[in-house]
Amino acid sequence: MIPTPSMALRAVRGSLVAKIFAVCFLAIHLPLIAMIAYLGSGFSTNPGEVLTILLAATLIGTITCLSTLWWFIRPLRGLARAVQQYQADGTPVRLRLAQSDEIGVVANTVATTIAELDSVMRKLRQQATTDQLTGLGNRRWLTERIAIEQTRAEREKAPISVVLFDLDHFKNINDSHGHDVGDKVLMAVGEVIRDNLRRYDLAARIGGEEFCLVLPKTRANEAAAIAERFRAQFEKLWIEPLRPGRVTASFGVYEATPADSMQAMLLQADRALYRAKETGRNRVQSAGWPAESR
């Protein structure tokens, strides 16, 4: 097949090397082209005029060459800034170039690869911080988030409460009805929690049948009321072959102080939880308060 001008033009557009070669060739030969055009027009060969034309053509060729090359590689600067921004704060790389030369291919490939990598990393991060059975956070996630909430509560001088609870006699459910039923119980509990938490509350499964709620902007009495609502809803669960009243939980509530560490908060809530179990289970116990019976 004999190459046509349109085929040659497409080849140049699709090749950065070809475009650079064409621009450099034109810039280098522009003084010669200008001189040939000048002499061919019949003008005089005055040395001063000839020198002026050569200098002007050289200057124009140089400026044209440098500015065109800058234009060719400009997308790489945008890509570099986008990648640096992504590394700094995770801003997605939104860069799509219409050009089909090597720079366009590299830029679009890098942008696509980073987007795919970011998606994979987000999924891995979610898997690493989420309890797969209940859909709640896990202990690792809670450790990260509770520190943030403590800092915010201290800055805003707002209360923050912690609720620890675990399911009563959960081992007996597994032993008597199998782990499939136990898993259904945990999933049902997780669903109740997700459906009833406020948007700024935190919930995590931190052990086999142990859960933790972190309630920002919440006093101990308010946290106890929230825990009581959960207790009542768990008691109503009907999960075959378990009838309502079989799934119950004991709750420990503690309102943190600014000086409390995460370990101290959980320890105080855990002590209240232990007292709730000692006094009959299926009840809410606030740290330092009398137990509340059903």
Rank of each mutant, 00 (worst) to 15 (best):
A153P: 02
Q126F: 10
R139V: 11
E144L: 15
A128I: 09
W141E: 11
T143F: 04
L142T: 07
A128M: 06
T130Q: 08
E144I: 12
R152H: 10
N138E: 06
L136H: 03
L133C: 04
Q150C: 10
D131I: 00
A147E: 15
Q126C: 10
R152G: 04
L133M: 15
T143Y: 02
A128Q: 04
E156Y: 15
L133Y: 07
L133G: 03
G137P: 00
Q150H: 15
T129W: 03
E156L: 14
W141K: 03
G135L: 09
E149S: 13
T151L: 15
E154H: 06
E154G: 01
T151I: 10
R145E: 15
E156R: 09
L136T: 02
Q126K: 11
R145I: 09
A147P: 01
R152K: 14
A153Q: 02
W141F: 14
G137F: 01
I148W: 12
L142R: 03
I148N: 07
T151N: 14
E149L: 09
I148A: 11
G135T: 04
D131F: 03
T130R: 11
L136Q: 02
E149Y: 05
A128L: 08
T130N: 08
Q132K: 07
E149K: 09
R155A: 14
L133I: 09
N138Q: 06
A147T: 14
R145Y: 05
Q127F: 11
Q150K: 10
T134F: 09
T130I: 08
T129H: 09
T134G: 11
R152Y: 04
I146Q: 05
E156A: 11
T134Q: 07
R139P: 00
Q126E: 14
I146A: 01
G137D: 02
R155L: 15
R140W: 12
Q126Y: 13
G137N: 03
E156V: 05
R139T: 03
R152L: 14
R145T: 05
R155W: 06
R155P: 02
G135S: 09
D131K: 02
Q132R: 13
T129Y: 05
Q127R: 11
I148S: 12
T129I: 07
R155G: 03
T130C: 05
R145G: 08
T143M: 00
A128F: 05
I148V: 13
T134R: 07
D131P: 04
R139M: 09
R140G: 09
W141N: 08
L133K: 07
R140V: 12
R140Y: 13
N138L: 05
Q126R: 12
R145M: 15
R140P: 01
Q126D: 13
T130K: 04
W141P: 00
N138W: 06
I146W: 08
I148Y: 14
A128V: 10
